[in-house]
Design a protein around this nucleic acid. Sequence first.
DNA 1: TTGACGCGTAGGATATCGCCTACGTATCGT
DNA 2: ACGATACGTAGGCGATATCCTACGCGTCAA
Lengths: 125, 125
Amino acid sequence: MVRVKATPVPPAVRSVSGQDRVFAALANGTRREVLRLLREDGPQPVQQLAERFTMRRPSLSEHLKVLREAGLVSEERAGRQRIYRLEAAPLGEVQDWLGPYERFWRAKLADLGELLDRIPDEEAQ
Amino acid sequence: MVRVKATPVPPAVRSVSGQDRVFAALANGTRREVLRLLREDGPQPVQQLAERFTMRRPSLSEHLKVLREAGLVSEERAGRQRIYRLEAAPLGEVQDWLGPYERFWRAKLADLGELLDRIPDEEAQ
DNA sequence: TTGACGCGTAGGATATCGCCTACGTATCGT
DNA sequence: ACGATACGTAGGCGATATCCTACGCGTCAA
């Protein structure tokens, strides 16, 4: 069969490795929870992290691998332990990605605010 | 300026599953590209969106379904067309999720700046 | 009314995900 | 040296993701 497209423009032109990995890593609740634990309780060995989940430790190790390859965590060896630490730089890139969308939800909130303003009470911003 | 949200537009379930849906929807390059197109070129019918991708139209329809169920787009019927529009509110929640991490990458950037300041001859860009 | 158009869904093929158990490697304590 | 500990990897397995073709449904134009 013949497939001729005028302007294909594959969407994966931009670094598939970087942004895709980060978003894919964040698409899992367990991995987001790992990031939260590292943020709130600081760097920890795998064992300590694993206590917070019901899954087996090897499964958590796989999640840590995904986070590592996305640049979201780093590991430091300490004896037979491996201390994992939050690396938030890729999240900064996520925020940059969000930037161009910000005015859209701000507009929505403004609409809501306008509605509220019809009820005599508030100040605007 | 914190306003209590009293049942906004989406009456959908806002629990953990909602957040999961949003992150999962963003984990695909095609879907992020759809959001960009809707942001830059405004609301469009499916056909017009499909011209920008190499995949078949039914596949794009499935991506639009994922975005719809994540609350990231809305559809409006116009004759035999369906006009899709960006709904950025869930992205606002993503930004809220990023909030607690912000100080981490800010700290990293500060360290980098300090490091660059110690090298007098180099220029950063 | 009839056929073309715009779009979604059904169902299948393949790849990847997320979990498991079993096992290998390096380190620590005795 | 020896066993216990901390961790990663290998490989299997069911579920899900992502693409496809075929097709059904509503709308428009002639």
